[in-house]
């Protein structure tokens, strides 16, 4: 196998001070077999066109900052191998459904606000003093939520979600999945404090289970199922509180 091959990379560019709408620019990049899309972007920035803007950090699928549309699918560009696309050209665009700030950089304010609103941390009615030790948890209890705790906030699921594309008030996959993660944690007592957002009109009830969030999630968080489980739980709790209003509502 020859070591170097040339691939065409078309990038969606947006330079707000020069243009009102994004435009396309195509680069030809010589790549090695082990290069990912992010390597090609870095190569372009270093050797061909220093004005190209994009976000990245870890280069190993943990920081969640390199999410972009690659040939129409939300991907971590540090995990998308160029050889899988070659000899076809690769189109790189900023994550859809988010406002573009410049080139491949999007504004994540909306997601950050929603994430904060679901209170993704352990809430105790009363903290016990440090002297009493840790909050213990069995392996089975850990398993209950572990999958949902793998989220790296890459927002690929928001780019995959047509419901979010149509209705920006939708709280969305990752934020709900993270709320669910803490609700399922045996050490947490914050269920009631999250319910107003998770079970709001803009929360779980907006979701129609397209399911694409779970398909694109690089960490197999499965936010679609987190949302469905929350719908089932909320509905049964509501039914219980109607049938037995005296019952304790946990």
């Amino acid at each position: 196998m020859s070591d170097l091959r040339t691939i065409k990379i078309t990038v969606l560019r947006y330079r707000p001070e020069e243009e009102d709408e994004p435009t396309e620019q195509t680069y030809e990049v010589e790549f090695r077999d082990d290069w990912v899309v992010l390597d090609a972007l870095n190569h372009i920035k270093d050797h061909i066109d220093g004005t190209l803007s994009f976000r990245w950090s870890c280069r190993m699928g943990v920081c969640g900052s390199c999410g972009m549309m690659v040939n129409g699918e939300p991907k971590l560009t540090c995990a998308a191998m160029l050889r899988d696309y070659y000899p076809n050209e690769v189109r790189v665009e900023p994550l859809v459904n988010f406002p573009i700030v410049r080139d491949l950089v999007t504004d994540m304010t909306d997601f950050m606000d929603k994430l904060k609103a679901v209170k993704p941390w352990i809430i105790r009615e009363e903290e016990k003093p440090v002297s009493e030790g840790e909050y213990l948890q069995t392996p089975d209890q850990l398993k209950d939520y572990k999958q949902f705790s793998q989220c790296i906030n890459c927002m690929l699921c928001y780019a995959a979600c047509p419901v979010y594309g149509l209705e920006h008030d939708f709280v969305g996959p990752a934020a709900i999945a993270l709320g669910h993660r803490y609700n399922l944690d045996s050490r947490d007592e914050g269920n009631q404090q999250r319910q107003h957002i998770i079970a709001s009109k803009e929360g779980i009830w907006e979701c129609t289970y397209v399911g694409e969030c779970s398909v694109v999630c690089p960490k197999h968080v499965d936010p679609a199922e987190a949302i469905q489980q929350t719908k089932v739980a909320t509905t049964t709790n509501r039914l219980k509180s109607l049938v037995m209003p005296w019952g304790n509502k946990k």
Binding site: I197, A199, K201, R238
Partner: peptide, 18 residues
Amino acid sequence: MNYKEHKSEPFWWGMFSQ
């Protein structure tokens, strides 16, 4: 954004899933 728990959606969703 001011969120509030929706009271009737669980009912409709419950009927939907049944």
